[in-house]
Structures are given as structure tokens and as C-alpha cells.
């Protein structure tokens, strides 16, 4: 129940924030934060909850972006259909690839998913007829739903926020269902999960497909907002940054994922006086966090809450 209260407060803040935001640049940051939120939530469900690592998320992110771009620019389909395809195609591909690949565990799965990301990146670069190679695709039409076109930063702020909050809400709900409990049990013990009748091979592939679909959704939002896609947005760097953002935010928590996503977006802005020091700051945060508080920023919130509760208990 209390999670819902926090979420409602955040939604209220999100709705009212444009009254305080003056520059388009700040809207831009929030839009990218919501896009990153969808990406990191997908990774959190896959890695944090189901225990399956992926270093290939950028590949699915890219497929989503290129689906949205190619279908609208090259074949003239409406942007909404591009968005739908950007979810379905990576999800289906994720399932088909996930079924055999997710038999691997730990380091091996990390390597194979990284390789998958490299293959997809190479396809974005080399399949010039479709993807435009390094020059990418320009002139991607903005997302239009009915008469509403998300071209201005403010409209896109609301649209990406609505999608981001919806994904957050559904993810919070998911981890509390039988499906979510099965994921969490599988993460800690595949043997226990299977003895309880949970078909782990299928479950892994489904969660992989889910996170691929969410990455694709994020990719479409990105492409349709920026209006331009090129392969450099979908390198292994992107995949690693998503994983690091999740680690700093908190691996086993959806709120931690949200922290991580916002940090990933805002940190480069905050430290841009230091130019390329962004990597230094994020890297240092990962090192410090994983050694001192493996539950990430969310773990610190939990500690503060517990300390506060203890103080309440002693003074009462």
C-alpha cells in the first residue's frame, strides 16, 4: 500500500513539475530519464528478479528504435504501428534466442548476451539498405496518437512519463504475483523452483522476451522523439551503463532501478563541468556501492528507514 502512496506522490509531482520547468533542456532530460527508466526496469526484472544477466540490452533497444524508424520512414506506416512493432519484434526475437541461450548461467550468459549485442550492432551498421549504416535514419515522424502529436518537449514529457509510470506500476504489480514469486525463487534456486512445478526454461525465456520488449519500447520512444537513429546509440557501452545504473540504484528492487535510471540520465549533466569525468564518477559509485551497500542507493533508503523506525521505537 505504501508503495502506491509514494507512486501517487511522484505522479502528482510529475504532473505539476512543468509549472516549474522553464527550459526545453530540462524536459529533454526528463524524457530521457523516462526512456532509461523503461530500459533499467526491463533489466531489473530480468537480472534483479529472475537472476538472468544480460549485456545485450542495447541490441533490443536498437531493434525497437530501428523498427520505429524503418516502418515509418521507409514504408510510411503510422508511428503508432511502428511503436507496437518495436515492442513485439524484440520480444519475439528475445523469446526465440532466449530459449536455447538461457540454459547458460552467470559469466557464460553474460558473454553470450554481450555477443548478441555485438551482432545486432553490426547489423545496424552493415545492413545499409535498411538502417542507413553509420549515417543512420533521419526524419522519423513523432509519435501521434489520435490528434495528439508528441513533437514538443512538453507533450513528449507527459507521454514518456505516462508510459514510464505505467511500466513501473505494472512491474511493481508483477513482482507480487505468482509469476513474480516464481521469478524470484528461480533466481535463488532453480532446483527449488522446478520442484514446485515451475517450468524454468520457459519462464526464463518469457522474462527475457519481456525485458527485450521493454527495451524495444524505449527504443521506439527514443527514435520518435529524437527523430534520428544511428548505430552509436546501441553499443555495448549502452548495455554496460544500464547494468551499472541498476547496480548503483539497487539490483533487487524496482525502486532501485528507478534511482539508477535517473542517475544515469542526470549524472552526466551534473558533472559536465568535469567533461569526461562522468565515467569516473559512475564507476567510483559502482565500486563504493557494491562494496559498502550491495543493495545500492535503494539499500541506503532502506537503512535510513530502519534507523528511523528504530529511533521511533526507542523514543516511544
Amino acid at each position: 500500500m505504501r508503495q502506491i502512496h509514494v507512486l501517487l506522490a511522484l505522479i502528482l509531482a510529475w504532473l505539476l513539475a512543468p509549472l516549474l520547468i522553464e527550459t526545453g533542456g530540462t524536459f529533454n532530460l526528463f524524457i530521457f530519464a523516462f526512456i532509461n527508466l523503461i530500459l533499467v526496469l526491463g533489466l531489473s526484472l530480468l537480472f534483479g528478479y529472475a537472476g538472468q544477466i544480460s549485456l545485450g540490452q542495447a541490441g533490443f533497444y536498437g531493434i525497437g528504435a530501428y523498427m520505429a524508424a524503418v516502418l515509418t520512414v521507409r514504408t510510411g506506416l503510422p508511428p503508432v504501428l511502428g511503436l507496437v512493432a518495436a515492442i513485439i519484434v524484440p520480444a519475439a526475437l528475445g523469446y526465440i534466442i532466449g530459449r536455447p541461450v538461457l540454459r547458460l548461467r552467470g559469466y557464460y550468459l553474460a558473454m553470450v548476451t554481450a555477443a548478441l549485442g555485438l551482432i545486432l550492432h553490426t547489423i545496424f551498421v552493415e545492413w545499409v539498405d535498411v538502417t542507413g549504416g553509420y549515417s543512420g535514419i533521419t526524419g522519423i515522424p513523432a509519435l501521434t496518437i489520435g490528434t495528439l502529436t508528441a513533437r514538443s518537449p512538453v507533450t513528449m514529457y507527459y507521454l514518456s512519463g505516462a508510459v514510464g509510470f505505467t511500466v513501473m506500476l505494472l512491474a511493481l504489480r508483477l513482482v507480487d504475483t505468482a509469476y513474480g514469486r516464481a521469478m524470484r525463487t528461480m533466481r535463488e534456486s532453480e532446483m527449488a523452483a522446478r520442484s514446485c512445478g515451475i517450468p524454468t526454461a520457459r519462464l526464463k525465456a518469457e522474462v527475457f522476451a519481456l525485458s527485450a520488449g521493454l527495451s524495444g519500447l524505449a527504443g521506439a520512444l527514443y527514435a520518435q522523439y529524437v527523430g534520428f537513429v544511428s548505430p552509436e546509440s546501441f553499443t555495448i557501452d549502452t548495455s554496460i551503463n544500464l547494468l551499472l545504473a541498476l547496480a548503483v540504484g539497487g539490483v533487487g528492487s524496482l525502486w532501485g532501478a528507478a534511482f539508477g535510471a535517473f542517475l544515469l540520465t542526470f549524472l552526466p549533466e551534473w558533472v559536465h563541468e568535469l567533461q569526461n569525468a562522468y565515467g569516473l564518477v559512475l564507476g567510483a559509485m559502482v565500486v563504493v556501492m557494491l562494496t559498502l551497500e550491495p543493495r545500492g542507493l535503494w539499500g541506503i533508503v532502506l537503512r535510513l528507514r530502519d534507523a528511523f523506525a528504530r529511533r521511533q521505537a526507542t523514543t516511544a
Binding site: 505468482a178 509469476y179 523452483a193 514446485c196 519481456l210
Partner: peptide, 16 residues
């Protein structure tokens, strides 16, 4: 509750 998994019908979408 994980033990009761088999008895809780439905898929990802119907449960969420």
C-alpha cells in the same frame, strides 16, 4: 505460496 504455483492459473498478463 511458491509451492502453490501450479494451482494459480493464468499467465503473466492475466496475473498482472
Amino acid at each position: 505460496l511458491v509451492g502453490a504455483h501450479r494451482h494459480i492459473r493464468g499467465n503473466l498478463f492475466s496475473q498482472v
